[in-house]
Amino acid sequence: MATQQPVKLAALEGLHHSGPGAPMSIGPIELPGVLSFMLHGRTSAVVTGLDVVAPNEAPPVFFTHYAFDTMVGIGLGLLALAAWSWWRWRPRRRATFFDSTWFLRAIAGSGPAAVVALIAGWIVTEVGRQPWIVHLHLRTADAVSDQHGLYWYFYATVAVYAILATSLVAVLRRLARTPR
């Protein structure tokens, strides 16, 4: 991505200024030089920032950056959970593998978390590519249909999926109550 889509990389790392010693931002924390080192093996390496393009040519940084942090954070969390499982599975402790409320909570939460990470990754790649729909070939604004009433299509889609999601939850809750 650093060579093919440097602006997307800058957006997902929240890197505003090009230059050497590019920091890695995790939430409010900035680790100076880490991004340069991760990409090129040297903290002095120059990394392209968002300032190489006009503001209206850059993707929305807020969504891209925090979606990326969410994805990476959940990924690391799942790795930690796997390590925790290995630790609890060690010989002589196996019998009590499930005897921890917080461990069970973490296991239960890991399923939805994996889906959230998936969606966050999707947001990174789709929002991070803006304003292009095909990188450097076709702008999203030029690609959108000029069909009338496109917003009705949108409202109808939202309404249908709201109904389906509600029904799905109702059916799943019922199945959870009466396992067959």
Binding site: A170, V171, T178, R180
Partner: peptide, 18 residues
Amino acid sequence: SAFIFRQYGAAASTEAPV
């Protein structure tokens, strides 16, 4: 969706359909 919702909502042996 309706096919599946109908299948899983159908009456189990003990209770009325959803």
